[in-house]
Amino acid sequence: MTAMKNPPLAPTSSEGPSVTRAAGRTSAKAAALRSRLSTGAIGAVVLVLLAALWEGYKALGQATGDRLLGLRFPVATDDLSMPGVGAILGALVEPARRGTSTILGVYLLEEASVTLREAAYGLVAGSLLGLALAIVFLHLPPVSRGLMPWLVASQTVPLVAIAPMVVIWGGKAGLPPWVAVTGIAAYLAFFPVTINALRGLKSPPKVQTEFMRSVAAGRRQLLFWLRLPAALPYLFAGLRLAATASVVGAIVGELSAGTGRGIGRVILTFAYYYSNGPEKLYAAVLVAAVTGIVFVQVLNLLERFALRNRHTR
């Protein structure tokens, strides 16, 4: 029943600004805390369940020779296809390569931080571009009508398809590979920001816009004192989507960027040398997943701080 208390603010938005904003009155605050705690608890339960499922499936496969009632298992259960949970976690604290003292977990975190930096730069650049576009669209509806369908189209262009080209452009321009990767991250990040920011800029009710007119506020004052603050909750909803997209963009960009670093590159390498240590690939994918999640959670904290004085909208 808890979810129903949130009014459907923007029913057509997939990530409306409603979800995380239950704070405010003490009862709502307590409810929010309780729901966050139970999310954490369920999250832990899900993790344990997944690990148990993994190990159970593996054990069953090992016992029956990957066959049950004459049917082959969809995924083989030997250590090469499915390294045990213990082996994956254990790999994190073992040396990354023979002959080095760096342990894999540290190495992966280092590479992930490279990816995270590319994603963060991409997010900033993409968000600024996205916000600027939204402001232009707000003030020039004909431009919006002409350009918007093409922006939608630009997002249906599979970015992997363009990634090699962007990397080539970056290379010919003499830029280090991470610049091209950042560009790809920004390309994926700007769109959700544009859409949500535009919706937010248009969100102030008539009373507020007419009040600003009644005090003879200029265009700039209307934008900075009314429309932008009003757009903030929407902007954060867009930024959350953009953050995920920028991490995906950074990883995909790294795949195409020949000599670069980053967790995407590590995954590619470990996939290539899979038979040497399958658990390493799983460990890398795990770190990549955690990286993406942490990135978005940081944004959530930022949002909670920025909107701390607001109740629900």
Partner: peptide, 23 residues
């Protein structure tokens, strides 16, 4: 359970799922 389950799903959705490709 719907609230917490959706919360977990939202969090998982923040992970770069493309990384599953080689697996």
């Amino acid at each position: 359970i719907s609230g917490p389950v959706l919360g977990v799903a939202v969090i998982v959705n923040c992970a770069p799922i493309v990384a599953l490709a080689p697996i």
